[in-house]
Design a protein around this nucleic acid. Structure first.
Length: 353
RNA sequence: GGCCCGUUCGUCUAGGGGUUAGGACAGGAGAUUUUCAUUCUUCAAACACGGGUUCGAUUCCCGUACGGGCUACCA
């Protein structure tokens, strides 16, 4: 495996990217540039139901505006690993899902939505796992003939990972240290959905491997599923080249509970989006920093300091200075409440000069 | 509920076994300014709690509390 730093920003085009996403992109960009690596844009559009027209272009426009452009990826020409849009890579995932099936690390499951609901009704804390999969209609419980029959009749099915009942999964997070989770706490996650598309988990792991990603830098909301990803690398035979993980603290609402969301802008009266966005369905307009008169350098500087700091008392940093000063070690562990007053101050500093 | 992550001024954070616990934003007071803004001076403001370990814990360990995340054929 090459030791070159390669990181990716992998949003799903379900709406406009908010500033939390921009910060994730920024940290990936800074890490790549700092280490002479590549910064890749990958579009994770595996959920066909949640696609929002224009969202992908919004991501590209945003990265362009703030000046952190990928050197490889969707919207940036054909790189060595094109295509970079997951819906265009569908066949790859099925191939790997089948590899897992062959190796006995995955199985077909024919349970309908109603079946699953019933299992949940019977068992308060139901999860599809080593203890309960014998209750399901899957290739582990059904006869080989029955499975073949269902498959040939094109019955809807999913492919699930087959996790052991009781095994510690351990991985090192570059920001948080060692994290250990037992498989008894995990479930047999769906890898390939009945519409033929992979879930995030499968697509993400396959693409990171194929695209030779060296570091996965993403939000903390992914921390709980990282053990599943580790298991996938292992079962796919890629554990030696598994990327390093770094889970970023979340951007929180200014007034209290929960992570910053798209609605907080309207509610609290400040933009949560880099660029103005018009909802294609409702025509509702959400304000953007650009249109509000913010300078891209100021937005970048402000975002950089939400969860990271250089360890000195300097606060005004150009993009080049950020690249020079950036390191994963200086990322704060706790979530950061977004502070609009500070954002205004950063912008004022840039406007003055 | 279960699992995972976290916890220093109101906010973003620095620091780290012995410090006057530092900076910035916001806030108070004052100066400069025709006004606003700017600028300057200055004040107030924090180690969640309880046990350890230690000569000494804000710093290390364990609990508790609180906060956050995840718990979908969503990412």
């Amino acid at each position: 495996m090459s030791t070159k730093v390669r990181v990716r920003f992998a949003p799903s085009p379900t709406g406009p990217l908010h500033i939390g996403g921009v910060r994730t992109a920024l940290y990936n960009y800074l890490f790549a540039k700092k280490n002479g690596g590549d910064f890749i844009l990958r579009i994770e559009d595996t959920d066909q139901n949640r696609l929002v027209p224009g969202a992908e272009q919004y991501v590209i426009d945003t990265l362009k505006w703030v000046g952190i452009e990928p050197n490889e990826g969707t919207g940036y020409g054909d790189g060595p690993h094109a295509p970079y849009r997951q819906s265009d890579r569908k066949d790859t995932y099925r191939q790997y899902a089948e590899q897992l099936l062959q190796a006995g690390f995955a199985y077909y499951a024919f349970d309908t939505e109603a079946d699953l609901e019933q299992m949940k009704a019977t068992n308060a804390n139901f999860k599809y796992d080593a203890n309960t999969r014998e209750l399901g209609k899957n290739s582990l419980t059904l006869s080989k003939e029955e499975v073949e029959k269902r498959l040939s009749e094109k019955e809807h099915y999913v492919i699930r990972i087959k996790l052991p009942a009781d095994e510690d999964v351990k991985f090192y997070d570059e920001i948080r240290g060692w994290v250990i989770v037992n498989t008894s706490q995990m479930d047999d996650k769906v890898l390939l959905k009945s519409d033929g598309m992979p879930t995030y988990h499968l697509a993400n792991v396959c693409d990171d491997y194929v695209m030779q990603i060296s570091h996965v830098i993403r939000g903390e909301e992914w921390l709980p599923s990282a053990p599943l990803h580790v298991m996938l690398y292992r079962y796919l035979g890629w554990e030696k080249s598994m990327p390093k993980f770094a889970h970023l603290p979340l951007l929180l609402k200014p007034d209290g509970n929960g992570k910053l969301s798209k609605r907080d802008g309207d509610r609290l009266g400040f933009p949560v989006f880099p660029l103005e966005w018009t909802d294609p369905k409702t025509n509702e307009i959400s304000s953007g920093y650009k249109q509000k008169g913010y300078l891209p350098e100021a937005v970048l500087n402000m975002l950089a300091f939400l969860g990271w700091n250089p360890g000195t008392e300097q606060e005004i940093f150009s993009k080049e200075e950020l690249i020079e000063a950036f390191s994963l070690e200086n990322i704060h562990k706790a979530g950061a409440k977004f502070d609009f007053e500070k954002a205004k101050w950063f912008n004022a500093e840039y406007i003055k000069n």
